[in-house]
Amino acid sequence: MNKIIEIKGLSKSYDGKKDALSSCTFSMDTGKICAVVGESGSGKSTLLRLIAGLERPDSGQIKIKGKIVSDDTLIMPPQHRHVGLVFQDFALFPHLTVAQNITFGLKTNKKETVKRLLQLIKMEDYAHAYPTSLSGGQEQRVAIVRTLALNPELLLLDEPFSNLDAGLKSELRQEIRQIVKKVGTSMIFITHDLYDAIDIADEIILLKDGSILRNSSITDFSKNIQNEEVEKIISDLKSNARRTLELLD
C-alpha cells in the first residue's frame, strides 16, 4: 500500500515555546484515518499546520505521496500540496454564502459540485445562506465539504468535534468517517478526547510535550505497551468505562 504521508525527524520551536514539536517520525497508509491525541500544548496543532504548509519546520522532512514537500531546502506552499484543513472554528468566509464558500477553490463544475456536496451533508436548502445563520454542526459540515470540493489527497481536521454537544458529536463522527471512506480520502484529525479516536480512527498517535509517545493501529493500541505513561492512560480509560457501565446498570 502507498504511504500518503511520511514524516522524519520533524521539529519546530516558537518564540514562546521551545520544542513545540520534537523530532517526530511517523507515516500513514493511503485511505486510513489517523487520530492524533494529546492534551493542549502537546504539539498537535503544530504538527497539522506543518503538514499543511502553514508553518515552516526547524528541521525534518515531510513527504506527501512520496514527494518531498518540506525539508531544509524547500517548502511547498499550501496551495500546491492538495491538502485540506478544517480549522477548529471552521473559518467559513463570513461575507460569502454557503455555496460561494464551497465553490471558492473551484474553477469548473461549480454548480454540480455544490449540489452534490450539499446532498452529501443533507443541507441542500442552504446554498444561499450565510455562515452566521448556521448552527455549529451545520458550519462544520459546510467547512468539511468545502475542502472536499477540491478532492484533496489528505484531509486534516483540527479538533473537529470539540465545539459540539455530545449527541451531535457521535452522529457527526460517523458521518465524517462514512464520507471520507466513500471518497477514499486519507484523514488525520486532532482531538484531546480519546473516545473520538476509538470511535472512528484506524490508527492513533499519542503526543505529549512535542514527542510521539505511541503510534499504532487502534486494535493494537492496548497491546505490547512499553511506556509507563501510556499504560496509565489506557488503564484510566478502562476504569472510567467500567465506572460508567456500573452506574448505568
Binding site: 472554528d89 473559518a91 471558492f104
Partner: peptide, 13 residues
Amino acid sequence: KYLAESSYLLGSS
C-alpha cells in the same frame, strides 16, 4: 489568520 489560511489551502494565491 485562519480565514486566509483556509483560502490558501483551497488553492488561492
